[in-house]
Design a protein around this nucleic acid. Structure first.
Lengths: 232, 232
DNA sequence: CTTTGTGAACGGATTCACAGCT
DNA sequence: AGCTGTGAATCCGTTCACAAAG
């Protein structure tokens, strides 16, 4: 009776949440190979983390392992899918059908992993009415209707930076409450809306930082504008 | 003389490094508007972080601000570009010219921000010889030659997961020492190679976790396979 | 008086190491 | 004996708050 009416909502740390999808992927692979159980050690290796972290992370979901044995793959898969909200598909809308939006609309990985693209919207009359991957591009003014019909809770922004905030506002007005932003700009959203961002150029800039420290170990301030000398 | 021959390599925390590109973006915007200086407060707001963090982060680069005034925009831009290794362009190779690779090859943001795409490689004979954005797709066997000619240090992997590790190995053998991986798989690379990953579906799965907690506040274990009920 | 730069306090995440269960 | 689950220790990053500088 200790845990009666109210389901205890365990507080899962953000860092753990962002690793759960990695574990899920590894588990799917293992399940495919027919392995019935898996140790934290092996799961860690497959997911690119260390074993202690895996155990701690999984312990936030509950005590689903068996000491001396490991974790039951199917059971853990089920629990993890449930926790991640992946027991049903999430329909997604993509706004901005330029290069990137186009590619995202064609990307099979979304559908495969439970995020079918239900709708595409743009503001440019030249692309409206065209189809990408069998999905017609609608005008962004139709977003409220489209979102309601398809029960869309998750939106992807692939517009130019200049349009992104406006598009985000309209998505939110249309009932979208989770947004993945690819536009290179900071968005502000109300606290009840989840926002994640992926900035492709930023990733390269971060790599550049470390790369630079490798190749330019012992130069002083001297900044050369021309190409770096070839490595031996 | 305390800081003589050896340039003191300040140890910049990873978290800070990953924010520098955001500051850089904000600074470019501010410079464009002709503002001569900027306060940590304003820079923070534009970059979506808080002011104390901005000051701490910038302090790792050096004491480039003026108390009572703020930071000189141009000077800070210069220092930050230098620190990030963005005083020259970095030529990039993309491996895997499917949907995603195609889009990345067309993405103008890379070139604009100092990462021109110098080469494209794939293994599929059907795409080899075609051009994307004016760049010919070469066979991956030519990677060593291509990488050497263009002095490529940074590679992007946009292949299917099954090919990614092999491609990474070949890139590294060809002298690439920073990799951005879009394939949904864990790569192992030697410690001197920098690796970052972007998994598009994982981002959506993380959003799904939080989204699920919003819409499914008070159900117990009861997992329904059909669509969620409409709000209100 | 304004705003930086930074020690100090705090909090979250990772790792350690071992008790507890099978 | 083998492996999980978890307190305790540690590390890293964030925030606070104020002295120092203009």
């Amino acid at each position: 009776m200790a845990n009666g009416g109210k389901r205890q909502a365990r507080k899962i740390p953000e860092a753990t949440v962002s690793r759960l999808p990695l574990y899920l992927r590894s588990l799917l692979e293992v399940a495919n190979d027919g392995m019935p159980t898996i140790s934290s050690e092996r799961l860690a290796e497959m997911s690119g983390v260390n074993a202690a972290k895996v155990r701690k992370d999984l312990s936030y979901l509950g005590s689903y392992g068996t000491r001396g044995v490991g974790y039951d793959v199917e059971y853990l898969l089920f629990q993890m899918s449930r926790e991640l909200g992946l027991t049903h598909d999430w329909h997604v809308v993509i706004a901005g059908i330029g290069n990137l939006g186009h590619a995202l609309a064609n990307y099979a990985g979304f559908h495969e992993r439970g995020f079918p693209i239900a709708a595409l919207v743009d503001a440019d009359p030249r692309v409206i009415g065209t189809e990408v991957n069998g999905i017609p591009v609608r005008h962004i003014d139709e977003l409220p209707a489209v979102a309601a019909i398809h029960q869309i809770a998750i939106g992807i922004i692939a517009t130019p930076a200049s349009a992104a905030q406006e598009v985000a506002d309209r998505m939110i007005a249309a009932g979208v409450s989770s947004i993945l932003n690819f536009a290179p700009t900071i968005l502000s959203v109300p606290p009840d809306v989840s926002l994640r961002k992926v900035d492709l150029a930023v990733e390269l800039q971060i790599l550049s930082f470390y790369q630079q420290r490798k190749t330019a170990t012992d130069r002083v301030a001297h900044v050369a504008a021309d190409a770096a000398p070839p490595a031996t």
